[in-house]
Design a binder for these strands. Structure first.
Length: 595
RNA sequence: GGUUCCGUAGCUCAGCUGGAUAGAGCAACAGCCUUCUAAGCUGUGGGUCAUUGGUUCGAAUCCAAUCGGAAUCACCA
């Protein structure tokens, strides 16, 4: 950022004078120089040949000559290859850049809430009829990480979850439990609450399937059978009773939901995610109805003959969307309209509302935002759907009915035991005490899992093979954690000061690269925040760790006897650690001091 | 059928506001622990960037068409 700013200004000034044109620094872009050429930054001169009226190489030479003449403190030399002008930055300039970023506390960060603006990130938002699975894990990690990243840009962040705690799905679990459980509870069975409720959800589906088959044998059509299956009738009846606040049903509903919440909380804790605001749908699902009425009065919506209320989105390339059932009850989008309005009403500083939801709902959110726009809410444009791809298994999509879902708790457990096994094989922890070991296994396991998920672009689908455990080597979370631990180890063996007395030292290639990469951190954080994409940060921090490891194997510190040089290297790796740690925390990944 | 998204090495992924000979990791092979942690470093092999056309000095990147995959088009959530 600092460097690009300087270069674009310098180049802008130069070409304006040379070619009698009027560009601004924003019109100029520089890029990093390719490995095989000398230099750090490159200007592509093709855009300027029509002004210079010279062939590209001569244009490059002309610009290069003028630059080193006018900016000889910063630019040491240049070389031009075809139309590419490669600039070699001076060591003092790079050292000054380094001193600048090193002197800034929390480089790359804005003070929390300094913008006095609020962003709400909604994620997780589970149904309460079954435990969390790998898809939820991706959702939670993305949402949490994005919230952390946005926080670094000076926003006040509200992490929100809206729990879908009512409806047919939970009634299915309730009915099956009533019929089949003999009063089984998490306490009596030792089963985690969400898994227990999930178990009865599965049992319900089995029962339903059996009943439908029986009815089919009796000669009913498939459609009739699916509607008339006794258990389904019972569930529908239960839902009616719930809405009528039947005490028995309500008590059971509360009991079973509480089992689930307790289970979810454990899983969230293991994932290291949390929320500032938890809403429950049974409280919020009626909000939207009055809005629909208003829209009807304003003629934004219309009532169809059968009594349902619709909005016409065909001018916007979408379809006609039903907003209220003919029997007057609300549906998904009705609720979402209501909660969005409530949220902007309750939080006056809210400038962005981000929904972390899978891409299967792209259409829904388009319709939702468009509808809000039609209702003339100016903030409709501030709603954003963070859409992410499904997690797929080698043999296709996860399907709960076929039992191919990867359960979140199971996955975490197996990651921990993999981490433990590998760590023991490497004999890393012989002098760790027992509790430290357990902590470390968890840290590594979650680091591997989180990084594995966050490094891929959210919008792309990703593949997970349960048969192969997630790697701990290479482009992984543990690699970065390991790098951090090494830095801590070096620092602990050296009595370091914080002086930055290193003025006239020669920089090794890897040192230059590491300075520049450190310097890029601010821009990367901004990009990740602006594009709502934690993967940008994840891939960047791997580059940093990789470069550190290369630097580390070529530039010894303890063996370096030039004290200025040694001090510089110490400060450089300190700064690197100062970037790795917060970046990893933005991804929700802990970094251990030793491993 | 309409709409949207995706297609890069054997596998998992970067790169996409157009720039030089397309990058990592895993897997395979060959080196490096008497020197700050070998979960590391160095090297080798591996590519028709789905296909075809267009835009231009220049295309994995932008546009169009085609092929392949996915999602969605519910008075489900």
């Amino acid at each position: 950022m600092l460097i690009e700013q300087f270069l674009t200004q310098a180049i802008c000034q130069t070409v304006n004078v040379l070619f009698q044109i009027q560009l601004t620094p924003q019109d100029i872009t520089v890029q990093r120089t390719n490995k095989e050429f000398e230099g750090e930054y490159t200007l592509v001169v093709f855009p300027y040949v029509k002004h210079s009226k010279l062939p590209p190489p001569e244009t490059a030479n002309l610009i290069g000559n003028t630059l080193i003449k006018n900016f000889n403190n910063e630019i040491l030399a240049y070389n031009s290859v075809k139309g590419f002008l490669n600039l070699v930055l001076s060591h003092t300039f790079l050292l000054n850049v380094f001193k600048t970023i090193h002197s800034i506390k929390n480089y790359g960060y804005e003070v929390e809430n300094s913008k006095n603006k609020t962003i709400m990130v909604e994620y997780a938002s589970p149904n309460t009829n079954k435990p969390l699975h790998l898809g939820h894990v991706r959702n939670c990690l993305l949402g949490y990480s994005l919230a952390q990243i946005l926080k670094t840009q000076g926003y006040h962040i509200i992490k929100a979850s809206i729990v879908n705690d009512r409806g047919v799905h939970i009634c299915k679990s309730m009915y099956a439990w009533q019929q089949l459980s003999n009063g089984e509870t998490p306490q009596s069975s030792g089963i985690k609450g969400d898994h227990l409720v999930g178990k009865y959800y599965v049992l319900f589906n089995n029962l339903y399937k059996k009943e439908v088959e029986e009815l089919l044998l009796k000669g009913l059509t498939k459609e009739e059978a699916e509607k008339q299956a006794p258990c389904m009738l019972a569930v529908n009846n239960m839902l009616v009773k719930w809405e009528a606040k039947d005490e028995e049903v309500l008590t059971l509903w509360k009991t079973m939901n509480n089992w689930v919440y307790k289970g979810f909380d454990e899983t969230y804790e293991k994932l290291g995610v949390n929320f500032d605001l938890v809403e429950y749908e049974h409280n919020t699902y009626l909000y939207g109805k009055t809005v629909i009425k208003e829209g009807l009065n304003k003629k934004v919506f219309y009532k169809k003959d059968n009594g349902s209320v619709c909005v016409d989105l065909t001018p916007d390339g979408l379809d006609e969307k039903v907003l209220l059932r003919s029997n007057g009850t609300s549906i998904y989008i009705t609720q979402d309209i209501g909660t969005a309005i409530e949220r902007f009403k309750n939080h006056p500083q809210l400038i962005k509302l981000i929904y972390t939801v899978g891409n299967e709902q792209d259409y829904h959110f388009k319709a939702l935002f468009k509808t809000l726009e039609k209702l003339n809410y100016t903030w409709a444009k501030d709603c954003y759907h963070l859409s992410y791809g499904m997690v797929e298994l080698p043999d296709g999509k996860m399907k709960s009915r076929e039992g191919t879902v990867v359960d979140a708790d199971d996955l975490i457990e197996s990651m921990i035991s993999t981490a433990q096994q590998t760590t023991e094989e490497l004999e890393k922890t012989s002098h760790f005490d027992e509790s430290e070991k357990i902590q470390l296994y968890k840290t590594i396991a979650m680091g591997a899992l989180k990084y594995f998920i966050l490094k891929v672009d959210p919008k792309k689908k990703m593949l997970f093979d349960p048969k192969e455990s997630i790697d701990l080597q290479g482009h992984t979370g543990p690699f970065i954690q390991y790098t951090f631990a090494r830095i801590q180890s070096i620092l602990s063996k050296i009595n370091s000061t914080d002086t930055i007395e290193f003025n006239a030292i020669d920089l090794h290639q890897k040192e230059k690269e590491l300075i520049i990469l450190n310097h890029d951190f601010k821009q990367v954080l901004q990009n990740a925040a602006n594009q709502y994409n934690p993967a940008i940060l994840a891939n960047y921090i791997y580059e940093v760790a990789k470069l550190f490891n290369q630097f580390y194997s070529t530039c010894p510190i303890i063996k370096e006897h030039n004290t200025q040089k040694q001090n510089f290297r110490i400060q450089l790796i300190k700064q690197t650690a100062n970037i790795i740690k917060p970046a990893m925390l933005c991804l929700g990944i802990e970094v251990p001091n030793r491993m």
